[in-house]
Nucleic acid binder design. Structure first.
Lengths: 132, 132
DNA sequence: CGCCATGCTCTCTTTTTGGTAAGTATAAAT
DNA sequence: ATTTATACTTACCAAAAAGAGAGCATGGCG
């Protein structure tokens, strides 16, 4: 999605584009982003800690998201063979760098919040006004 | 999701956080991103042009995504009352700036493509190796 | 007259996603 | 002997998202 001027020297290879889109699709979901945020602030967390830090997430989604992050190389999972079980999660450098990259979108959203809310109101007003 | 060091002067208000997350959820989907890319490269497109530029998108999804972008203030929709119908879409400044913000993630994905693919292979190998 | 082009909109079906709840393993504590 | 804690996994079900395909409006064209 880069601005033309910002695109890397490499030519726009459609195959690369598709791959990048797929990666973004896998990586840019709500829970992954939240977990990256949590793990950036507290670099080493157990499963239960993460669950408490993500209000509203179900165990299933948490497990699923963490497994996905592990698969994509964003986080590591360390199992201590003790009982009761203990498992720790950390971001990899890759995960950390994704957090930084996503930072731009986060700041954009924060900065343009008011504009977007106004746009929604305008849109709603137009919808209500024109049909009659 | 900002890095602690990069967070804006404003304190981390949880209400703002939730709003920002919601905005990102609405704005950061596959088709919206693709459309922003297309409309950045070719600033004024008709519906049919956009459909052709997004291989695999259904009419329904295209309409739906464009309406969403209009609602959030990312794009404008101009209807020419002719027959057959003619409708033109353009990015707003907000839409353009989102493209720029998202550029960071795009570049991250492009730059780390190989690393991620390797991570996936490693993960798959670990899965295949340990169960037995 | 009949057909085409365009940008939808509507309905129906399939796929995907996510929630809930129960089950598992095991050592230590009571 | 029973309970507790932890990190899952599995089965089942409901809701949401997406795809397929038909229908619509209408002026110009042959």
């Amino acid at each position: 999605m880069p601005h033309p001027a910002a695109r890397q020297p490499a030519p726009t290879d459609p195959a690369v584009d598709r791959l990048v889109e797929e990666i973004i699709g896998r990586v840019a979901d709500k829970w992954t982003m939240l977990l990256i945020e949590v793990l950036t602030e507290r670099p080493c967390c157990r499963f239960g800690e993460l669950a408490r830090a993500c209000p509203g997430i179900s165990q299933k989604m948490l497990t699923q998201t963490l497994r996905g992050m592990e698969r994509e190389g964003l986080a590591t999972r360390t199992v201590y063979p003790v009982v009761p079980p203990k498992v720790e999660y950390r971001l990899t450098d890759l995960g950390l760098s994704l957090g930084e990259a996503f930072c731009g979108v986060w700041l954009w959203a924060a900065a343009n919040r008011a504009t977007i809310e106004q746009a929604r109101r305008d849109y709603a007003a137009r919808q209500a006004g024109s049909p009659p």
